[in-house]
Design a protein around this nucleic acid. Structure first.
Length: 581
DNA sequence: GGGCTTCCTG
DNA sequence: CAGGAAGCCC
């Protein structure tokens, strides 16, 4: 092959080759086939049909209402005021911040906004909030009570005696503990001062307690244990009470949960979404979504055409940095790659968490990452900056058991957050953006398959198609921009242009489609982006841009490079773990 | 004529 | 990102 790339991995060569050979070739990608499918019956709006006299009007109104819902939900989902301090700024704002700025939204009165957590307009929020507050209050009382028990045991003079121990957490609803405990601190004010001081020092220097008599130490241990258990129990109880409520409450409750857990435990939110690791609220959730990866990407058209080793080999577990001639290329900068890789694995993605790995072989349950060769050195994982890592609110790659889709609404408390069954919401938009990494030209039927919680009608379909059109627009604009910049920078060989995870172009794209970097951009997207960039470069440097329709051939090439979207995207609840962060 | 896309605009 | 116009394709 005359145009072997220097930086491109073998599959990228194939990709490039494909771009050349497949322009007028068969376009038998899965999505294209789907695109010719007739719409499924459930795609019709249930309440209206084209035969209804007012159908168009209804649909129009519905569309407007849908858009208003989108705005409202965008406002309501805006995480900044709701989860203060739970994530770095910008980590989870994603696309939401732009929503309120919509100008053309019509301000129809919205009557069916199912999930509005706004404090003023939602009675369920008030109701749930009050209850949570009450229980939090009780929780605090219990804590106080238990702390005082500890204090009594900790004060050296009293160490030998120890207070009468009342088992905590048995009945958080009753006021017994509170009442029973109150006398201790309140009636012994003189002791309280010392106790308070000691408590402070205990918190700050726990090791000082080691000087206590052994009996007291043992007692302390028991108390600590009980304290921990009681707190956990109480937290669980609160959450249980909160989360057994009807689904319509879940939005607010989810937020309450996020704020509640870190507060009550006094722990900061771990970067990997530690809050979710907590009580049984999410037990089912995490069971279901654990460690996505390896979910079959189905029949990748690209893989079929390429028949390259890349798609039939085990997933990459790259631990070696790229040793190629990177430094010679202004467009490729490698930094933090290895660290990020490690971090990503620590965060739970593991070696299989690359979307780009698509073949069914990847589903092999037993893997030995350490023994796997680093096949594609430059296609490494993870964002380009530490900031990108820090801003990861939650693990993006979550696994769902293939057969568990039907059980989702039952086991996943947050699954209904975005299920409105009518309009598109920010969650859908986020999901669509992520899907863009795999498919630039999804057909409407493909979209229907991947958004099972959307009631597709003419409006929602065209809106979602419009989304992808807008995605493409931005994508191609960036490509052209960077191609021209490369030309003006004196680049002459298109092979010099490689889109890597730390390149500026990728940064721009990632910011647009994956703000917060809470999703692992698949390697295949980098390859497509590289190809697109090179195609633009070639066209512009050949002066083809004088032709008004000079981009069309490029569009045609790129449109044939759609890959199958991972199955997990078919879950209506998939992107929510991202949004919740 | 409908579906889809790009282009332009706000 | 949405609205709308224009164009292409089946």
């Amino acid at each position: 092959m005359a145009r072997n790339p220097i930086l491109l991995s073998p599959q990228s060569q194939a990709c490039s080759h494909l771009a050349e050979c497949d322009v007028e070739g068969e376009s038998s990608s899965f999505s294209r086939q789907l695109g010719r499918d007739s719409s499924p019956p459930w795609a019709q709006a249930p309440s209206s049909s084209p035969t209804d006299p007012g159908w168009f009007g209804d649909e129009h109104i519905e569309m407007k209402r849908a858009r208003v819902e989108t705005i409202v939900q965008g406002i309501c989902l805006s995480p900044s005021p709701l989860v203060p301090g739970s994530a770095p700024a910008g980590a989870s704002t994603c696309y939401l911040e732009k929503v309120p700025e919509r100008k053309r939204k019509q301000s129809h009165p919205v009557q069916q906004v199912p999930l509005q957590p706004g404090p003023a307009q939602n009675w369920t929020n008030r109701k749930g909030g009050t209850r949570v507050r009450e229980q939090l209050h009780q929780l605090k009382q219990q804590l106080k009570c238990l702390q005082e028990h500890i204090l009594q045991a900790a004060v050296p003079q009293d160490a030998a005696q120890g207070p009468e121990y009342v088992e905590p957490g048995k009945d958080p609803q009753s006021g017994k503990h509170r009442n029973g405990c109150r006398p201790h601190p309140r009636t012994a004010n003189s002791d309280l001062g010392g106790a308070e001081k000691y408590r402070v020092s205990e918190v700050q220097h726990p090791s000082e307690l080691r000087s206590l008599p052994s009996g007291a130490q043992a007692f302390l241990e028991v108390l600590k244990k009980e304290l921990t258990g009681a707190v956990s129990q109480a937290v669980d109880l609160v959450l249980q009470n909160v989360l057994v409520d009807p689904p319509s409450h879940l939005t607010q409750q989810g937020r309450s949960f996020q704020a509640l857990v870190p507060e009550s435990r006094g722990e900061p939110l771990p970067p990997g979404g530690g809050a979710w690791k907590d009580p049984h609220v999410l037990a089912a959730f995490s069971r279901r979504v654990q460690s996505q990866a390896g979910i079959s990407l189905g029949n990748s058209s690209l893989a079929k055409v390429l028949d390259s080793p890349r798609y039939s080999l085990s997933p990459r577990s790259i631990s070696k940095p790229y040793h190629g001639p990177t430094a010679n290329y202004p467009w490729t900068v490698h930094s933090h790659i290895q660290e990020n890789q490690t971090l990503s694995q620590l965060l739970g993605q593991g070696p299989t968490g690359r979307w780009s790995s698509g073949p069914p072989q990847d589903l092999a349950p037993q893997r030995h990452p350490a023994s796997e060769p680093a096949l594609h050195p430059w296609v490494l994982s993870q964002p380009f900056t530490e900031a990108g890592l820090e801003s990861r609110p939650l693990l993006p790659l979550v696994k769902m058991e293939p057969g568990s889709l039907q059980a989702v609404p039952d086991v996943l408390p947050f699954s209904s957050v975005h299920i409105s069954f009518t309009s598109l919401n920010p969650g859908h938009l986020k999901k669509a953006k992520l899907m863009f990494f795999f498919a630039r030209y999804p057909s409407s039927s493909l979209l229907k398959a991947y958004f099972p919680d959307v009631q597709f009608n003419r409006c929602t379909t065209s809106q979602m198609i419009k989304w992808f059109s807008n995605f493409r627009e931005y994508y191609y604009i960036q490509m052209e921009k960077f191609a021209r910049q490369a030309i003006s920078d004196g680049v002459t060989n298109p092979k010099m242009l490689v889109v890597l995870r730390d390149s500026e172009l990728f940064r721009a794209l990632n910011t647009h489609y994956n703000k917060g970097s809470d999703f692992e951009v698949p390697d295949c997207f980098l390859e497509i982006a590289t190809l697109t960039l090179q195609e633009f470069f070639r066209a512009v440097s050949a002066g083809k841009d004088s032709d008004p329709s000079w981009k069309k051939p490029i569009y045609k090439i790129i449109s044939k490079l759609d890959r199958d979207i991972p199955e997990i995207f078919k879950s209506s609840s998939y992107p929510q773990e991202l949004l919740q962060g």
